[in-house]
């Protein structure tokens, strides 16, 4: 939390003049489940990136193509939507949930990750 400013220091009218400054605000503390990225299974289809409501998917351009690079846990609230929309979460043959080792994203309890 920044130090609270007095009325003389604030812009008038409650107007916020710093666009998108919510980026300073950490929502990662909300997380109960943590998405864990397994790059070896990823096909870089960008579905996770497209759907993430918190823009927590890190993407870089490699050879002109977007590549999933993992998570920005500062923002990730752990909703699991990324894993849900990930095509690798489903076994293409059986149409059943794929075994964990085949998935690109798996959800783990936050308690598994003590201090980082």
């Amino acid at each position: 939390m920044p130090e609270l400013k007095g009325w003389k220091e604030l812009p008038i009218g409650g107007i916020i003049v710093e666009p998108g400054n919510a980026k300073q605000y950490k929502t990662g503390t909300w997380r109960v489940l943590r998405p864990v990225y397994q790059p070896e299974n990823c096909i870089h289809c960008m579905q996770c990136w497209l759907y993430c409501p918190d823009q927590a998917i890190v993407v870089e351009i490699v050879d002109g193509k977007p590549k999933m690079k993992g998570y920005n846990y500062y923002y990730c609230k752990g909703c699991g939507l990324c894993a849900n929309v990930c095509p690798r979460s489903i076994d293409p043959k059986t149409k059943q949930p794929a075994p964990e080792e085949k998935r690109a994203i798996i959800m783990r309890p936050e308690t598994d990750f003590a201090e980082e």
Binding site: W7, L10, G14, I15, P19
Partner: peptide, 27 residues
């Protein structure tokens, strides 16, 4: 603070709770 100034985007009318509302009224 014009909304048409897209180079300097501002937010009008945020949720202003007990930690700031009073200061804005004082203004």
């Amino acid at each position: 603070y014009s909304l048409l100034d897209t180079d300097h985007p501002v937010t009008y009318g945020p949720l202003d709770l007990y930690d700031y509302y009073f200061e804005h009224k004082r203004q």
